[in-house]
């Protein structure tokens, strides 16, 4: 490689110029994109650590001017957000566990090539990706099942997803047949093979699907906002959404100045929201670096088999 470079040294000067320019351009574009993603987040974090009244004067960029933890204190003091947080955690844990169980069972069964009806089932399941009943029939059905205004609406509708089901099936198919055969000879039934051989070998795909599902649960505000009339059982994302929607409708942002005049407290509704945004996002951010490799792997498994 090195020798080649020195031999080509001369011609490189000629053709190297535009190549280098392209390289610099690529770096500029990608660095620009990364900054466009990070800087707004830093701005929000800085705002959440800044005195609310002071922030309303503007001029906060990437570092708090008047550092305070009051916003966070207020968020935790306010019972609604803490309670909503608990509900989010509960639905994430319960929803993800239930969803993993149902999905992995079905994926394992659908993996068996000789299973009568396998093809038909796969087609029927995949078809739901292309066509659905729409918002209203779905709502009526949930209502009939007693899911509306019930914690179950956070768990049941997201139990199985076609993409994750196919992802798992593809992974299970890659497990060598011989392992299962030997277990069968040892007198293992299908269920035994599944729990003792298939599951332990499938940790990567379980991790991927589990994490995707968990993130979906964590981020879902829709079911809380539309299927849960009482605010008692709202997850934290729905609480935030209600704050946001109210702010959007009342032009609250322009009237922050009024809040300063009225409110002697250093916390404004605006700075409170920023703190709420940060505490809702931090769990994902903390987890993210560790699980990123799983996420990318998952996207690739999903890409191979559609």
């Amino acid at each position: 490689m090195k020798a080649k470079r020195t031999v080509n040294g001369r011609s490189k000067i000629k053709s190297g110029r535009p190549d280098q320019i392209i390289q610099v351009l690529i770096y500029c574009v990608v660095i620009g994109l990364c900054l466009a993603i990070i800087l707004p987040c830093v701005n929000i974090a800085a705002l959440s650590f800044n005195d609310g009244k002071d922030a309303a004067k503007g001029g906060i960029y990437f570092w708090p001017r008047l550092f305070t933890l009051d916003n966070y204190r207020q968020v935790f003091k306010d019972g609604t957000i803490t309670k909503a947080y608990m509900i989010t955690i509960a639905r994430t844990v319960i929803g993800t566990t239930a969803s993993l169980a149902v999905t992995s069972f079905a994926a394992y069964a659908l993996k068996e090539k000789e299973l009568p009806g396998r093809k038909l089932l796969t087609i029927l399941i995949t078809f739901t990706m292309l066509f659905g009943g729409g918002m209203i029939p779905t709502y009526i059905q949930y209502n009939k099942l007693g899911l509306v205004d019930h914690f179950g609406v956070y768990v049941v509708p997201g139990l199985v997803s076609v993409t994750y089901l196919l992802m798992m099936r593809t992974f299970f198919e890659s497990i060598p047949e011989s392992l299962e055969e030997s277990a069968k000879l040892d007198g293992c039934g299908y269920f035994g093979i599944f729990t003792r051989i298939v599951l332990p070998l499938s940790k990567p795909v379980i991790a991927v699907v589990g994490l995707y599902t968990a993130v979906n649960h964590w981020n879902d505000w829709f079911s809380g906002a539309f299927y849960m009339r009482s605010s008692r059982l709202w997850p934290v994302q729905t609480v935030l959404q209600q704050m946001l929607t109210r702010a959007m409708a009342n032009k609250e942002v322009t009237s922050v100045a009024q809040a300063i005049a009225q409110n002697s407290n250093s916390v404004t509704s605006d700075s409170l929201k920023m703190a709420a945004v940060v505490i809702t996002t931090v769990p994902i951010l903390c987890l993210y670096p560790f699980v990123q490799k799983y996420f990318t792997k998952g996207a690739m498994i999903g890409a191979v088999k559609e």
Binding site: A101, V102, T103, F105, A106, Y108, A109, L110, L121, L124, I125, T128, F131, G132, G133, G134, I136, P137, T138, I140, Q141, L145, V156, P157, L159, V160, L165, Y190, F191, F194
Partner: peptide, 21 residues
Amino acid sequence: LMLVPCIIYYILICYVPMGGV
């Protein structure tokens, strides 16, 4: 048996609403 929960799910959550159109 392992497929049952999944099938029930698709019937109740996807296909019944599809009929609901």
